[in-house]
Design a protein around this nucleic acid. Structure first.
Lengths: 94, 94
DNA sequence: CATTAGCGTAACCCGAAACGTTACGGATTA
DNA sequence: TAATCCGTAACGTTTCGGGTTACGCTAATG
């Protein structure tokens, strides 16, 4: 289990995609083809990156959709691991 | 973009976890702590692997939760890429 | 042959999450 | 002051994971 709470991908988007280019949340949302609210929720960690959003990011910023989704997986998984002990699961294999 | 439709992770679960040990769907579902329907849906590609389910799999089969979720990401992403051209996205960076 | 176990899945309910629109208040800037 | 930009609350829609119940099919077994 990873030790530290990984940052939500929204922070990375803000730091790596918006700020360097001086993009406004409103401008970026329009470019991505989503509402300002949707992008704002992601940037502030209140929504995750959906597969479709990952593709949008890959087009707009010429990046890898997989890398965005992978970061989201790390984030989701870390939180799921926090509840590991609460799950009633029986070991079925060595 | 990946060329071929990646298999849904359920096929891998069936082939790598259930069949080698001779586990029935019912037994595996009980061990995982989910309903038979839920596991059946995953095995037959009608549901994805949620973060929580990935943790359950990692406990029951002593595997990596991350690997299960990564496979799910590959699968989801491939399907999301299929609709890439339908997205109205403007390039915001080189 | 009749019974049982295992399986897929349809019908129905619930809750969570992504996304949209509208609208408000606060902060910053022209 | 007026115009932007932003976060976010409130509302609705859609999708999806998950549970329960129940049905029909198939294969194995008494």
């Amino acid at each position: 289990m990873r030790m530290h709470n990984p940052p939500h991908p929204g922070e990375i988007i803000k730091a790596l995609c918006l700020e360097p280019v001086g993009l406004t949340v409103t401008e970026a949302a329009e470019g991505l083809g989503v509402s300002r609210k949707t992008l704002s929720a992601i940037l502030n960690g209140r929504s995750g990156i959906s597969p479709e959003m990952a593709v949008r990011l890959s087009i707009a910023f010429n990046t890898s959709a997989e890398s965005w989704l992978s970061q989201q997986v790390q984030y989701d998984l870390w939180h799921a691991e926090q509840g590991r002990k609460a799950l009633k699961v029986i070991k079925l294999a060595a």
